[in-house]
Computed example of a mutant assay.
Amino acid sequence: MKKLGLATALLLAMTGAQAYQFEVQGQSEFIDNTVNDKNFTGAVQGTYYFKNVDSSKGPLAEAAFLNQASNVAVAYNYGEYDVDADREDLVSHTIGAKAEAYVPTKYVPVYASASYSNTIIDNKNNRADDHGDRYAVELGAVIAPNFLVAVGYTSVANQTSYDAFNQFNNGVAKAALESDTIDQDQDAITARTKYVGAIDGTNMSIGFDAGLVYGEETAYNLGTTLYLNNKLSVGVSYLESDLADIDSAIGANVNYFITPAVAVGASFVDANATESNRDTQTVGLNAKFRF
């Protein structure tokens, strides 16, 4: 009977869940640049929402945002890089923890987040290992329905320090660009906006996001996602940095919910190196499960 009950619960989660409280995601990226095409990353992320998330309000991919769902999350990213046999051969581990909260007020919902990430670099070729911590906080508000504006502060104690959640959600190439933009300036200011809304007269929705990182250099990013229906979405993004060697990255992604609880997706990022031979392309595959 216990086995039957477990199988029934799993079947319901796989086929028709309209509310969920846990989300588990996994992804892997394959990295191709002009000096090596054998690098890859793997990542997992788990999120717990303090209240059930209603996934019937709009695009399934944005259910947590549309519900203003407070949560805590953990992430782990693994990467193997063999960019140059003489100089760079390493294994990277990044772990992170994050909390997000939406607090209703008499004026607008207030948003706050705090995160911590730690990166450990296991260098080969007789080079010293490295590691670094980073802390980040954000404060903002939902100033209009489904329209978030937030500003933040990031402290990077070591150049070798990546944001585990940025790396998971936006890919290793963009996370590396963001880290290089902050550079040895250990304090950075961030700002971002996000909006998701229905397209009148259709069953489609549109999403926009924009962000700024101001550290040793400055980086800007823009993105838009078209939700063709509540299950299927396609998106494009652009990041530009003041860095001299790699100054921009263009991305595209597609995501599809097989059921309200199970989704798969793919992504592509092309990072342009203007003053070096390190043009980089990444191809990613991801999946998520909600229950």
Rank of each mutant, 00 (worst) to 15 (best):
A273N: 07
I182D: 10
A263Q: 04
N203P: 15
T280R: 07
D270G: 10
D279F: 02
S267R: 12
V74R: 14
F289I: 13
E216D: 10
N158I: 08
T190M: 06
G223W: 15
T154M: 08
L226A: 11
A144N: 09
N253W: 15
N170Y: 10
L4R: 08
A261R: 08
S113N: 15
A144R: 14
N36G: 13
T190W: 09
Y81I: 05
A19S: 13
T259C: 06
V234C: 14
A13E: 01
A75S: 11
Q167C: 00
P109G: 08
R278T: 14
K231T: 10
I246L: 14
T282S: 13
N253R: 10
A75M: 14
L226W: 14
D180M: 03
T154D: 11
K194G: 06
E275C: 10
L4H: 08
V196D: 00
T181N: 09
S237L: 15
E80S: 04
S115P: 12
S205H: 02
N125P: 12
F257S: 14
L243I: 00
Q159F: 11
A17H: 06
P260T: 05
Y116N: 07
I182A: 12
A191F: 02
S248F: 02
A266V: 13
S161Y: 06
A73C: 14
T282N: 13
A43P: 12
F22M: 03
I246T: 02
M1N: 05
E178H: 01
Y135V: 10
F40Y: 12
S237R: 10
I182C: 02
V151P: 00
S248G: 06
A112R: 00
V234E: 05
A157I: 03
P59G: 06
E29V: 05
A19H: 10
G207N: 00
E178F: 07
M14H: 13
R127S: 07
Q21A: 03
